[in-house]
């Protein structure tokens, strides 16, 4: 252990830690602005237009500055330590998971051979932090939001893991870098890239289940029950204000990106270019990877501004009665397909 610690280069660690953080922060600023623009355009509005000139591009920066200045209110009878700690823990959980995401053909935070397993394990800390926030606020709406979210996240982890398993069955690896590398090339039907989603019809089903599950995991409509504003005011965030609330927001968007990037890695070839060797290389692979991830994020936004929300019992019904059996059946079918072909 001490030997291991002595071998660590602190600067390398800092650099490795800073790269995902920069990506998350820049992405969060852009995504919050983009979410408002998407909402605006879908609703025949314009969204933010004033701050910064062109289409209000500086709106989220202005919001951030405002949130920093805001008073940090802590409810009198709250459990102070947990209340203060919860937002940071939530962000830490999604941030830590970025360590194993292969951003580009030449960059991955930590190329460990249990990448997927690590990612799923670390993100389940999210549940804990949300319950913490909900309970510590000493607010009934927060508590309800926290309980809902605990139930929701724990349930939807099962179909997520089951669909990830299908990919692992096909690729035989837990390392995300390896999984991505296995998907390079354009061999299917002569022109389609070797992405897993094209390789196996049951993987398409797996992707649909995976996508529904990550919608639920990142609390997006139609599964945004923990913070459903028309029912629970703001759910577990009700008592938060200022930067602590901003941390929740940041963590939520980071979570969205994380799961979208995971989806892109598992099903859409990660950083592989859709045109084979054309436009590949470390920079372009980063570009393609982010593009795929952001497209999935856009679809999540698009769904959010289209659909109403499920009720809590229906949410559970969908998970336990439909998605979980379906995902396990699908797992078997994928395995059979792999054996036969």
């Amino acid at each position: 252990m001490t030997q291991y610690l002595l071998n660590i280069n602190p600067i390398a660690i800092l650099v490795h830690a800073a790269i995902p953080l920069t990506i998350i922060l820049v992405y969060a600023l852009v995504a919050i602005w983009a979410e408002r623009k998407v909402a605006g355009f879908i609703q025949d509005r314009l969204g933010p237009m004033r701050v910064g000139g062109w289409h209000g591009w500086a709106q989220s920066i202005a919001d951030l500055l405002k949130l920093i200045q805001k008073e940090d209110i802590i409810p009198a009878d709250s459990s102070r330590f947990l209340f203060k700690f919860a937002p940071f823990m939530m962000f830490a959980a999604s941030y830590a998971a970025f360590a194993v995401i292969p951003f580009s053909s030449s960059y991955i935070g930590s190329n460990i051979n249990i990448g997927v397993f690590y990612l799923l394990a670390v993100t389940s800390v999210l549940t804990l932090s949300i319950i913490m926030a909900g309970w510590a606020s000493n607010n009934k709406w927060s508590l309800l939001g926290g309980m809902r979210s605990a139930a929701q996240l724990v349930s939807y982890e099962v179909p997520t893991i089951a669909t990830v398993l299908t990919v692992i069955v096909v690729t035989g690896s837990l390392n995300l870098m390896t999984i991505t590398e296995m998907q390079s090339g354009n061999d299917i039907l002569g022109f389609l890239p070797n992405w897993l989603i094209f390789q196996n019809p049951f993987l398409l089903v797996a992707f649909v289940i995976f996508f529904i599950s990550i919608l639920a995991e990142s609390h997006r409509v139609p599964f945004d029950l923990p913070e459903s504003e028309s029912e629970l005011v703001a759910g577990y965030q009700t008592e938060y204000s200022g930067m602590r609330w901003a941390m929740f927001m940041l963590a939520e968007y980071a979570d969205m990106l994380l799961l979208s990037l995971l989806g892109a890695t598992l099903f859409f070839g990660g950083w592989n270019s859709p045109f084979g060797e054309f436009m590949s290389g470390p920079f372009w692979s980063f570009f393609w990877f982010m593009l795929k991830g952001l497209l999935l994020v856009f679809v999540m936004m698009w769904i959010r501004w289209t659909l109403p929300r499920y009720r809590v019992d229906q949410l559970m019904y969908i998970c336990w009665s439909i998605l979980i059996p379906l995902s396990f059946i699908n797992l078997v079918l994928v395995a059979l397909w792999e054996v036969i072909f």
């Binding site: 909402a39 879908i42 609703q43 025949d44 509005r45 409509v221 139609p222 945004d224 459903s228 028309s230 501004w305 289209t306 659909l307 109403p308 929300r309």
Partner: peptide, 16 residues
């Protein structure tokens, strides 16, 4: 009513 159930967009379409 749609807004109460989480559907934001129809509300604004109807407002137009």
């Amino acid at each position: 009513f749609g807004l109460d159930l989480g559907a934001f967009t129809p509300f604004l379409y109807l407002f137009i």
